[in-house]
Nucleic acid binder design. Sequence first.
DNA 1: GACGGTTGATATAACGTTGTATCACACTTT
DNA 2: AAAGTGTGATACAACGTTATATCAACCGTC
Lengths: 335, 335
Amino acid sequence: MTERPTLADVARNAGVSIATASQALRGTGRISRATREKVARVAREIRYVPDLRAAAMRSGDNREIGFVINQLHNPFNAEVVSGAVDLLERQNYLVSIFDMRDDVARQDRQLQAFIRHGRGGVLWVPALDTPDEAFELLRAHGIPTVTFLRNPGQNLDHVGIRNAEALQTAVDHLADLGHKDIAYLGGQGMGPVRRDRIAGYRRQMAERGLAAPIIWDSDDTKQAGLVQMQALMRDHPQVTAVVCNGDMVAIGACLALVRMGIQPSREVSVIGFDDTEEAALVIPPLTTLSVAPYKLGQKLAQTLLDRIADPQMPPVVAEVSARLVTRATTGAPQR
Amino acid sequence: MTERPTLADVARNAGVSIATASQALRGTGRISRATREKVARVAREIRYVPDLRAAAMRSGDNREIGFVINQLHNPFNAEVVSGAVDLLERQNYLVSIFDMRDDVARQDRQLQAFIRHGRGGVLWVPALDTPDEAFELLRAHGIPTVTFLRNPGQNLDHVGIRNAEALQTAVDHLADLGHKDIAYLGGQGMGPVRRDRIAGYRRQMAERGLAAPIIWDSDDTKQAGLVQMQALMRDHPQVTAVVCNGDMVAIGACLALVRMGIQPSREVSVIGFDDTEEAALVIPPLTTLSVAPYKLGQKLAQTLLDRIADPQMPPVVAEVSARLVTRATTGAPQR
DNA sequence: GACGGTTGATATAACGTTGTATCACACTTT
DNA sequence: AAAGTGTGATACAACGTTATATCAACCGTC
């Protein structure tokens, strides 16, 4: 194992000063064509790669971004990450991804780590019970921050989804098909996202004069969806449709129906949320609310870049609408 | 937005020199109990967090690790990453995860980025046609590196799976059940992993005196598995069992069988690879080759730590065996 | 009261870069 | 020939840390 080549090595081998080597490689200052080429050649030969940590320290141009997300194995999130990473990479930023697995302690450790390791910007899905201290810390260090999905109302830039509107759309669709007993399945607690969705659900159930709202908790996994759907149907056998908090829960719910000998869409309709790749693939294909995660990730990244470009700008909140994608798990009720 | 607090700020507020502040916070040198406490108090008050980039520059202790993986949305890989990240985090390392999406150009850009941003170690699943230059670069910069899964035979530390052995186990299981026409489905090209698996498959087919081997390409996704399984059965209707290159392909293959009106395990058996969480959950539950991804990730991390601790040590290759988990997609052939 | 030893704090240089000021030299212009 | 104008390169300081050397003050000892 050899030692990492440094700018001093380039300078020595090219027979110039360190300052000259630096300027030659970056095309700044007044350097003759001849030396510029010689320096470039030497740098290539000894495989010189600049150390951007040292450069950032001097120039203040820090191109490392941290991304804290709630769960990475969720395909919707993974797609968002791809969108953000691709856009930032094109601007020569390096993105460090972190999966906090919906654990506040882990999240706080990771934000702390981002500061210790000098990240120049943070993208962040805040955990539900994030302490104010976490926001204070980022603010005190002047780190450009954009929150995502869950808006903590902390006077920060934010990119999210119009959750209430999305649920109104879903309930409308089911009501138009003739459903009256529609339940809300999935999520737990009352974080901003679920709160808004349930608010939209309640409002539209009332608006259309349907049955009393039923809210049923579940983790956002297939396994939990399967178990909780069975429990839901046991307690509320009159239900003919469920709107779910995520595609994974919805797929779990469909599996539960199949196990109970019920065909999704004929007797009981199911709507998901996220339009993950798998939603289209599963049998029967899932009706779901779609929000184009890749584009959302790009919007997120762009919001951060704007903030970095102008730290004084007042905070921006960007919200995108969800679109109902009608597939095979919704239909008129048969009983 | 305020400016980031620095050690100089702590020192000024505590009325001591910068050197004293540094030593007080880290517990090195000879500093009185009184000043030590005063400095700690001031640091807490102004929310000082040390800049480890500057510290690493001076002390040489670099605790940033880069992890380049082929595809992150693959749940097996995600689990490996969790194992590695958890162990390294406990040792105060920060891990940056990168998804190169099986694209050599992207991979090379990311390795380059790791060097530019001064990562002190790299975990890496090398892309299939990785140029030698990529290895040269890491070597020239003296960066401790452990390859994972795909062994490029580059005299580097490596953690992997006994692929040939795993396929012998799978073929044995099917042969014991009475299958003769067993196909290998999934993957493409001849990277080290697939090469070894196919070698094990061929060897055991010959050993047990079974039919001529059939190798069928497919991407490692459910969708591709579905499509390719249909094509495989069309071309080779005699096949009564398939061993797959991954769980996602296997699940896709089962979906294909269901669509064709065939019950997996009764007429055609299917074996997956990876034992992802979903394999146990899908209906029918998938028989698959299991390798405990979380533990594998930890082993990977530990190998890197050992290398960092002793850069002179000769390269280590660690291989773990896969275990066959028998669920519901394998059984005696009915025709 | 001069000497060696301990304690607590500080000055200084260094890590690898970059921005700015400076300098040596050649070439014009008067 | 003196003054002015570019051109090409370099010296130096700084970013935020830490390791090492140094230093002042106090202690006890003979």
